[in-house]
Design a protein around this nucleic acid. Sequence first.
DNA 1: CTGAATATTTCAGCTTGTCAAGCAATTGGG
DNA 2: CCCAATTGCTTGACAAGCTGAAATATTCAG
Lengths: 164, 164
Amino acid sequence: MTARPDPLTVEVVDLIGTVVARFHEEYERAAAEHSLTGAQARLLRLLAMESMPMRKLAQCLKCEPSNVTGIVDRLESRGLVERRPDPADRRVKLAVPTTEGQATAEHLRTSLDFAREPLGRLTAAERTLLKQLLQRMLGLGDAPDASDSPEAGGPAEGPGRGGA
Amino acid sequence: MTARPDPLTVEVVDLIGTVVARFHEEYERAAAEHSLTGAQARLLRLLAMESMPMRKLAQCLKCEPSNVTGIVDRLESRGLVERRPDPADRRVKLAVPTTEGQATAEHLRTSLDFAREPLGRLTAAERTLLKQLLQRMLGLGDAPDASDSPEAGGPAEGPGRGGA
DNA sequence: CTGAATATTTCAGCTTGTCAAGCAATTGGG
DNA sequence: CCCAATTGCTTGACAAGCTGAAATATTCAG
């Protein structure tokens, strides 16, 4: 049981670890270029796609709501995000990116060549292959058909969460 | 420049983002099971493979040496790591895992089925393929492992197929 | 209306991380 | 040999992320 599964798997796991590390580095670097921290960049990126209440933000970021308060505070104090009351429920505060926040998010996205550049080394065919392998690995059925849908651990949050 | 490269690449980037997020979650979870933070687990894992001076730890973790001091402090106060003088250079302090630290690192490693489980969905051939694709993506020419490439060994020329 | 549930914030406390300053030991030039 | 620069590590101050508990406001069920 203590024995490692097999050398090939270990090798692949290590490679994934490297990918994760590099992704992280690049994400932080890109965020820093806009004087944002990684957490701020992730939150802003989420909001740029869709405004949402604090509570949902916490769910997306998988952290406590009280934590989101601080991150939004800092973004708000820099004029990138705005808190807006929800007319339907006055307990709720919608976090909404300002025009400048939207622009920053857009710049951020284009800065994220980190993933584009390494992928450029692969041909289109290889990228397709990689996509399929990753989908299978994540248990995201490529085919919408559910005959063998894995369901392990819940595929969950789709592409929403690019953070790291 | 604001235009996204192409749908396929975007899709793969999103998938990698998901892999990164899941990897992270699982790593933190596994660390928490042993009452360790992610940073502590990473440091302990490094030491379990090879004892090293503080300075080198900082390099491996890509952070400032002053930061390592604190992390080692906490591990040391829990009896998982020990500081030992380097006889060859009295400025240097070697960080060395205690017996308990080694055991914890070992448990940690086996807890990290996160990568093994999802990879279990892939056949050996698929894993080999994934390994090669990731290596190419990372720009790692050849792993020290000289295992032959079953197929797709070549750069898989011919972008002819593969959608956009 | 009353009480439970929900959304958010505040606060205390911890860990990570940076930077600047400081101390100890090593090293190299004179 | 001796002094100065360098190297390895720690300390202190500080910002940010994160958690958990408590406080506040609002909604909702009975």
